[in-house]
Amino acid sequence: MLRLRYGHRQAMVAAAIRALPNEGCGLLVGRADEVVEIVPSPNVADSARVYEIDPRVLLRTFRDVETRGLEVIGVFHSHTHSAAYPSPTDVAQAPDPSWHYVLVSLAEKESDVRSFRILNGTITEEDLALDHDQGHGSPDRR
């Protein structure tokens, strides 16, 4: 399960929309299964079909999290015209089996955000636990 605040979900969708017509992307910073911060990145692949996190953002974020006792726990990117599901390219290039891989689809009118684990080429979807920013009760699970 990946736990995040509603604002984190909105930040990922906003980054995906800002990047249009290209794919948007960024890093998930936090602890284990809990997102603390979303770090949007320019898509240096500059493409509607592929993405690559800016190497400068990557280095800066890894250094920053170390000093704060946090970790990079995953990555998000958008699919502009296809479902929120990892593509063969996503699976082949998934760098870290411990990461959460979040997909944002803008293919439909309503954005779709889903999270996956990718281990040895096998994709497993995981629940998203959305904590509302105002602290209303238990997290929504989907």
Partner: peptide, 12 residues
């Protein structure tokens, strides 16, 4: 010297 795997993928 820092090594970091590129973080990349795509929809195709």
């Amino acid at each position: 010297i820092t090594l970091l795997p590129a973080v990349a993928g795509g929809s195709h």
